[in-house]
Design a protein around this nucleic acid. Structure first.
Lengths: 244, 244
DNA sequence: CGACTTCTTGAGGAGACTCAAGGGTGGTGG
DNA sequence: CCACCACCCTTGAGTCTCCTCAAGAAGTCG
């Protein structure tokens, strides 16, 4: 949830504002580190905590019995990892580090206390979850009803939206530590086809992609291609509980 | 969130237990009714409330500029409608009535109060949202990485899981007020192809579908085909705030 | 500099789509 | 009570998108 007040930089750390991060880190245990490729959460493992991502990128994936991998989301600092699985006894997703990452573990007990002692923060986390749901809903619409080219457009737009959240002044060219294989896993197509479709997007003057650097060339037309609105989280905050 | 205690029938009303429903209905305004086909929430409209579905079935969909429709979820009594859009100023989805339905409107102010005055209920709603996220994540995995037959299997399994929630003794044959067009919109394929694939599922002895009556014939093999685990929400409730 | 991963490009094939026509089924009104 | 209409479902034929398999080029890291 970005703080949309004029005091802009509260968005600096991504989904959670600095205030909220601080509160959460109070609740959280000591931080720990992972290296590129490490699994932070493993599909099927018992859920005893979630994590607050402090530094680095991670991704959550589901692996089907066939071995096929579907990537669900790319996480950036400020995102919570593993919350969906709180509703189940085991984890539904695997969360892997894309780079060296730092996370803070959030045990269940403090998480529960938060609902009693910090209702405003709880409401914020609720809203963040709703935002995540909309993100997933958009992905479903894209995957169910559009071509590979359109899906990739959606992937780039969602990445852009999230990156801008963390770095509002970053412009429309940014590094993402993903390979075309990862893009394929995100879009639900093969990496071979990603390569071909990227060519088309380049030729059409919409996006450029060079070894992990994305450049959004024509945002308007890219959004048009994607078919989904450029969503801007914008909460009617008047109804939130007062800060304590 | 089903109440998994031995006092079984708390699940009777679907996602929310009777207790929780009662609390929520306290917060809610008067009920209102809609007829089959009515739009309860319209994509793009300003979000000023959400709804608690009391009776009947609804579905939420996203419509792309091309006119293609992707169905995101089928709702049954006890489900909350329109919460994802709380994170945005406008609604991301259209919610339509499948039959005559009754809903209770939940304005934002009481919703906010709930976080202060009923932290346990707030935590439950949080968990329900997490459950919905996992549902969406599974759909994405299905849509990104499996064939039409496998996707339809997933659709049937998710419908079954939700129906059983409301009616634990209902068995594996149940009415769903959907057409093959709706199934197609759910699975992200065309209705023509749904017809063909249903034949195969019948021939394989997995599922039968006759004018809105589903019969799960071989649950185990259907789940195997789908490739996704049969998830059972099962919360570690020890960490939830105490009821007030 | 060699081993590995990633990216590109080609050829052939399969799954799902489009277009189209025909048969059921249920509801409505004459 | 029957005729008509609207919608739903089925089936066929042809097409296109995307996949698979494969081989080679390019970039990366020890």
């Amino acid at each position: 949830m970005s703080e949309l007040s004029p005091t802009a930089r509260l968005t600096a750390f991504g989904s959670l504002s600095d205030q909220e991060m601080a509160l959460l880190k109070d609740l959280a245990g000591p931080t720990c580190r992972f290296s590129r490729g490490d699994a932070i959460i493993t599909e099927g493992a018992a859920t005893s905590r979630c994590y607050l991502l402090l530094d680095g990128w991670t991704a959550s994936t589901i692996t089907l019995p066939s071995g096929a991998r579907q990537m669900l989301k790319v996480h950036m600092p400020g995102d919570l990892l593993g919350t969906p699985s709180l509703a189940y006894g085991y984890s539904a997703e695997t969360v892997t580090a894309f780079s060296d990452v730092t996370v803070a573990a959030l045990a269940l007990a403090p998480f529960g206390r938060m609902f009693e002692e910090a209702p405003r923060l709880a409401a914020m986390l609720f809203l963040i979850s709703q935002e995540e749901r909309v993100l997933l809903m958009d992905r479903i619409a894209a995957m169910g009803r559009s071509t590979a080219k359109e899906r990739l457009a959606t992937v780039f737009l969602q990445l852009r939206a999230r990156v801008i959240r963390s770095d509002p002044d970053g412009g429309d060219s940014f590094r993402v530590p993903l390979t075309q294989i990862d893009l394929a896993d995100l879009a639900g197509i093969t990496s071979v086809h990603v390569s071909r479709v990227l060519q088309q997007l380049r030729d059409d003057g919409l996006v450029d992609w060079t070894r992990g650097v994305v450049t959004i060339i024509d945002l308007r037309r890219l959004a048009e291609l994607s078919g989904l609105p450029l969503r801007v989280a914008q909460v009617e905050r008047s109804w939130l509980p007062a800060a304590r």
